[in-house]
Amino acid sequence: MISVGIVDYGVGNIHSLSKSVRIAGFRPEISSSKELLSKSDIILLPGVGSFSFAIENLKKSGLDSFIIKQSKINKPIIGICLGMQLLCSNSTEGGINKGLGIIPGKIKRMSNSKFHIGWNSIQLKNKNHFLKRFNNHEFFFNHGYQFEGNQKYVIAETEFEKSFPTIIKKNNTIGFQFHPEKSQKAGIQLLKKTIKSISNIE
């Protein structure tokens, strides 16, 4: 069974995420131990929180350099919501803070200082992507900051005043701006498909 190491860095809905990973058919392992996390097949970076607080916590525990190292050896990594934003170069939330820099791009406040909260659909840019069956499906969003970066990393976008990236990917690292674990059936199926596809383990 594929093991999913959920990074516990003091921020994030680790309990509900762990349950969703289990429903999707995988073995969740919540941990802040680099040794334990490195043994898992996939690393999952959760996040409900502010960027500045979260990156500070990652740095304090040394998990920031650990995650960067894992990406360099091509370990599959999934970032969810704030977890996705942390994978990027920097963010303006709570001052300008450097991110992990795994996916190049900036995190900026959404236009008109709006919050994007609730259910919205995603539109895949490449209709042959492994997530193609989720094109136009609705997922649960809860954020006020968004990704801005090179389009080559953008897998899907969502319409909110104007389109913005909601799934980004570079090599074996993928980030979701929405919460698959809180998006009912479609979310669990998307999580399942993603974990299977990027882990390369059947």
């Binding site: 921020v11 929180g49 502010s50 607080f53 704030l82 919050f115 909260i117 809860n142 954020h143 006020g144």
Partner: peptide
């Protein structure tokens, strides 16, 4: 609270 969990939450 907002500084820790983000105002969206």
């Amino acid at each position: 609270i907002s500084n820790a969990i983000g105002s969206q939450a």
